[in-house]
Simulated scan of single mutants.
Amino acid sequence: MTTARIRPAHAGDAAALHALHTATWREAYADLLPEHVFEARERDGLPAWEHRLTDMAGPSVWLAHRDGEPVGFAWAEAAGTGQVRALELAALYVRASEYGQGTAANLLQLATGDAPCMLWVAQDNPRALAFYRKHGFEADGAARRVDAWGNLAVVRMVR
Rank of each mutant, 00 (worst) to 15 (best):
E42R: 13
W149T: 02
A128S: 10
R52P: 01
L119V: 09
L20W: 00
A19K: 07
N125D: 10
A23E: 07
D124Q: 13
A16I: 09
Q123F: 11
R7K: 13
R43G: 03
V84R: 12
D55S: 00
A96K: 15
W75I: 01
L107D: 04
S97Q: 04
E50S: 12
A142V: 15
E27D: 12
K134C: 13
G80E: 07
W75C: 04
R159P: 03
L129T: 09
R133I: 11
L20I: 04
M1Y: 01
R43A: 13
F38C: 04
W25D: 01
L89D: 09
E98K: 05
M118R: 11
Y93Q: 10
A16E: 15
A19Y: 08
E138L: 08
G72I: 00
Q109Y: 03
R5W: 07
A48W: 13
A57E: 13
G82L: 04
G102C: 03
Y99P: 04
Y93S: 02
L119S: 12
R66Y: 11
G100F: 15
F73D: 00
L33P: 00
D140G: 05
G80S: 11
P59N: 13
V146G: 03
E138G: 07
G12E: 12
A142R: 15
V154R: 02
G58W: 15
L53W: 14
A19L: 09
R145S: 11
A111H: 03
E27I: 14
R127Y: 15
R43Y: 06
E35Q: 07
R26I: 09
A111Q: 01
V71L: 04
L152F: 05
A143V: 06
L129F: 12
G136Y: 04
R95L: 10
G80Q: 07
L53N: 10
A130Q: 12
P8K: 03
G141I: 02
Q101R: 06
A78S: 10
G141Q: 05
W149H: 06
L32C: 13
E42S: 08
Y132F: 13
P126W: 02
L63K: 00
L33R: 02
M157E: 04
E88K: 08
Y29P: 02
V37W: 09
T3E: 11
A143N: 03
A48S: 15
G82C: 03
G68I: 09
R7F: 12
D31C: 05
G136V: 09
M157F: 08
A79P: 03
E42L: 11
N106P: 00
A28W: 10
W149L: 14
A153D: 13
D44M: 02
E35N: 02
E27K: 07
P59Y: 00
M118G: 12
A16K: 01
L17S: 01
L92R: 02
H65M: 09
W75Y: 12
V94R: 00
A105D: 06
M157Y: 11
K134S: 10
A130C: 07
A74S: 14
E50K: 14
A104G: 14
L20E: 01
T54Y: 12
A14W: 01
P47M: 05
Y99E: 08
E88F: 03
Y29M: 05
L110P: 00
A15T: 14
Y93K: 06
T81E: 08
F137H: 08
G100P: 06
V61K: 00
H21G: 06
A64Y: 00
A128E: 08
R145Q: 15
R159V: 13
T103Y: 01
A76K: 01
Q123K: 14
A4G: 07
